[in-house]
């Protein structure tokens, strides 16, 4: 994972609710064995409409997306986070996220920042007016160059991993003793848990 501390730039004032991961990246793009190059399929059905918000000149290269409730619902495809990163989006600010998307975003260093609806409505207004929005992870605050300052909460462990760009698997492998102890206990108490092999 890349270390992420500060994301600053334009925000795309989309605001749509219940955006499912089929919208973020349709299934036909999932036939890949790589994490790269998925940006061209990102938000395909939205971008098929002329005049859509993602292809507006002022939103090119914007690192932040403003969205509505329940962002990333539906399919568990991590390709959604990969596609967003590949098109340059490094953060989503929304009132709520699906559980699976929020985990996938975190694993890829995409910030999923939860603010309340009124705060997002304000950011939508200033972003539409060309404001620069900044997400400061260390201080857990979203600011704009229009005097806005909104604090957000984040799981302390996730924050540490994001800021240091830690390899979570390496961290977990350091728990080897505890994992082996669990396995030994399981073998003793419930040997039937190991499936008969096919």
């Amino acid at each position: 994972m890349q270390a992420t501390r500060m994301i600053s730039g334009r925000a795309i004032p989309w605001g749509a609710k219940n955006i499912d991961t089929d919208i973020i990246i349709p299934a036909k793009w999932l036939k890949t064995v790589s994490r790269d190059g998925l940006g061209k399929g990102a938000f395909e059905s939205v971008r098929a409409v002329p005049g859509n918000i993602f292809d507006a000149a002022e939103n090119q290269g914007a690192p932040i997306l403003l969205a509505g409730d329940n962002f990333g619902c539906g399919s568990s495809r991590e390709h959604a986070a990969w596609a967003m990163l590949d098109m340059g989006l490094q953060a989503v600010i929304a009132p709520s996220f699906s559980d699976i998307f929020s985990g996938n975003a975190f694993k890829n260093g995409v910030l999923a920042v939860t603010l309340d609806e009124a705060q997002i409505a304000r950011l939508m207004a200033v972003a539409g007016d060309g404001a620069t929005i900044t997400i400061d992870l260390e201080n857990q605050v979203v600011t704009s160059d229009r005097q806005d300052r909104f604090a957000f909460a984040i799981d302390p462990f996730r924050k540490m991993c994001l800021m240091q760009g830690l390899d979570e698997i390496a961290l977990t492998l350091a728990e080897e003793t505890a994992i082996s102890a669990h396995e030994a206990r399981q073998t003793h108490d419930a040997p039937w848990l190991v499936p008969s092999q096919i």
Binding site: S75, S76, A81, I100, G103, N104, K107, I169, T172, E175
Partner: peptide, 29 residues
């Protein structure tokens, strides 16, 4: 995400992303 189905047998079953697939393959946790 439809791993939720297996909960019908009383298993705690849920969908995960690919980074988590790698994590489970490597650590079983």
């Amino acid at each position: 995400s439809h791993t939720a189905a297996h909960g019908a047998l009383g298993a705690l079953a849920f969908g995960i992303g690919t980074s988590e697939v790698e994590h489970v393959l490597a650590t079983q946790t």
